[in-house]
Write a protein that binds this DNA or RNA. Structure first.
Lengths: 344, 344
DNA sequence: CTTTAGCACTCATTTGATAAGAGTGCTAAT
DNA sequence: ATTAGCACTCTTATCAAATGAGTGCTAAAG
């Protein structure tokens, strides 16, 4: 679909104008704002052509034009210029991350907060998840009779630990033995593989400790599930109400219903391309209910491993250039923040 | 403010009718629905009296009556009959808690979910917090050279642990000594007291380990802060949009703005009475922006210690009887769930 | 062949006037 | 003390007309 230069300019003008005002764009307003050197009539002719190809459409006969899904796609792929964050915004981000965040959950929160303040769209964020972490060592440490600590150490340096209650006749030696066997089975496997491994194997070798081992494995499962659970954080629910498309309560309800179901958001995050910022426009999002929205996603990673995904959801009339820049920037910030192991 | 029986009946009718329909209540509709044995004209006379005392008011001259804040208060204090959960609802709750929740965060989530499904108001929940937990023992366990586990055991049986990186020339003996000193200082204190204790005291005794002890204390602070942080969970944001008062977008924005600020919610939760379900109506909520809302709160506890607060926020036209029952019931469920120490 | 001025036409939105309806307050009768 | 009856008030719905933004088309000009 090759467009001549002027058609591109007209399309760009329509998209950008519509993004700014949320109103249908008229030929006259384009002639006024953009110096294309032609009259509204000429622009009207171009518009008629663009409409025929399906890049724009008319809400009703006597209205201006609005970009179609295809039009936005063309704009994003071919016309859009990359946006830059202002120094002011850079400063905002640094300010948010300034108070040396030390806890994982805080870093996530800060990111969420920053993106929320930067965009007025829905922000959601998954991870970090550890399922590809490799188990280095399991330790079982008795804290007191009847109580032990299960410590799971990963190659990446992460340590997960949980206390557990045991029947009090289990001795330290018993625990040492169990630890030995567990390490033999699980060492070198990823967390994902461990949860997939049929636990019965281990179980058989440790029939002597049937009850205890049952308990430990159960706890281990809980710990791993807990840690592997791709946590989902959501923000910006009030910010997005500023968008004019949500001055109708029915639209708000739709949106809220959509985001209420975590699967929907997870689905969007799953489609993120590991190597670049992903833009899904309207029906490109798999979910039927999302046909009016657009989503922007990018992954963040630590040491080459994908740790999670950051996403934005907004109306199709989204400031793509800006949103993409913010998402890209913040995934970088997040990746960096997680790479310093100065937090616990 | 003593009202004769019939005035009470009329007020009750107005409140209940308005709660149900969200519309001003007319004298005729009361005469029809409630069998007071009098004509609308009589009821009108009573209404005029009630209005004079300030228990109800008229949105405009030719409209029915609406309860005032004072009117709701009277209703809640004197007229309201306690509601009961239906067997169906009891089943719903049990279903939600059925899949043997094992992780603290899950119990919270389940509670939130249950209340959300039961009420159509905003649900928020703080805690659990541990600041009154008494420290039983600190352990520092070396995992490998340069890596140790800080274990904090509380009297209640809770165990918090975090891994930390240390400089690799710290020996096991060093750690044992540090552990000893820390225990000497902190054992028997509540977490709150520990964070208040001037850390310098300890610091002085352990000058030998200046760097290490600094690091450990820092981590301990993080752990305690993390655990003591009164987490705030929020749900029902989409459910509340069902309430007719939020068919106007402006109202929605107000509400969202209000709940966006955690302080506002915390403030409400702080006002909870430890011994009974608390109802704050309109301006009784301290925050100015909340003058249109009502809040219902109740604490949950474990072994006599308050662990957190569950709250509901909705329009003043709230089904108080029902909401109070739900809140009371769910704080009980929550207290029980947390008392079984079958979770990790 | 391209561009554009001019004009008729369409359709959403605003405005104003009118009617309908709900509900009250008051008065006088019961 | 109660209530039927009625005038009065104020909101909401309805409809027609006016307004105006914007297009599409045609014919003239470049």
């Amino acid at each position: 679909m090759a467009l001549d230069l002027r058609k591109q300019q007209v399309l760009e003008a329509i998209v950008e104008c519509h993004i700014e005002t949320a109103e249908p764009v008229s030929s006259r307003s384009i002639a006024r704002k953009y110096n294309l050197g032609v009259s509204p009539a000429t622009i009207r002719n171009e518009m008629a052509d663009l409409e025929e190809i399906g890049l724009i459409r008319q809400p009703h006969t006597s209205a201006g034009r609005v970009p179609s899904q295809k039009g936005y796609r063309y704009y994003v792929d071919k016309l859009m210029k990359k946006a830059e964050l202002t120094p002011r915004e850079e400063r905002l981000i640094r300010a948010i991350f300034a108070k040396r965040v030390k806890v994982l959950a805080d870093i996530i929160q800060c990111t969420l907060k920053a993106v929320t303040q930067l965009t007025d769209y829905l922000v959601f964020l998954s991870g970090p998840y550890f399922e590809n972490d490799v188990l280095k060592k399991i330790k079982i440490i008795q804290l007191m009779p009847g109580k032990a600590l299960l410590v799971i150490m990963a190659e990446t340096g992460w340590v997960h630990s949980k206390a557990m209650d045991l029947s009090s006749d289990i001795t330290v030696d018993d625990l040492a033995y169990i630890e030995l066997v567990l390490n033999r089975y699980f060492q070198g496997l990823t967390f994902k593989q461990i949860t997939r491994t049929v636990l019965k194997d281990v179980y058989n070798e440790l029939t002597r400790y049937r009850k205890t081992i049952n308990h430990i494995l159960e706890i281990m499962e809980v710990v791993l599930q807990e840690e592997m659970k791709e946590n989902l954080y959501l923000g910006g629910t009030n910010r997005i109400l500023k968008q004019p498309e949500y001055s109708d309560i029915e639209e708000v309800r739709n949106l809220m219903n959509f985001i209420e179901k975590e699967e929907n958001l997870r689905m969007i995050l799953q489609d993120a391309d590991p190597y670049r910022v992903t833009v899904k426009i309207g029906e490109e999002i798999k979910s039927e209910q999302a046909s009016k929205y657009s989503a922007i996603t990018a992954v963040y990673n630590v040491g080459g491993n994908i740790m999670g995904v950051l996403g934005l959801l907004g109306p199709m009339r989204m400031d793509y250039a800006r949103a993409m820049t913010v998402v890209e920037h913040m995934t970088n910030v997040l990746s960096e923040a997680l790479s310093e192991d100065k937090f616990y």
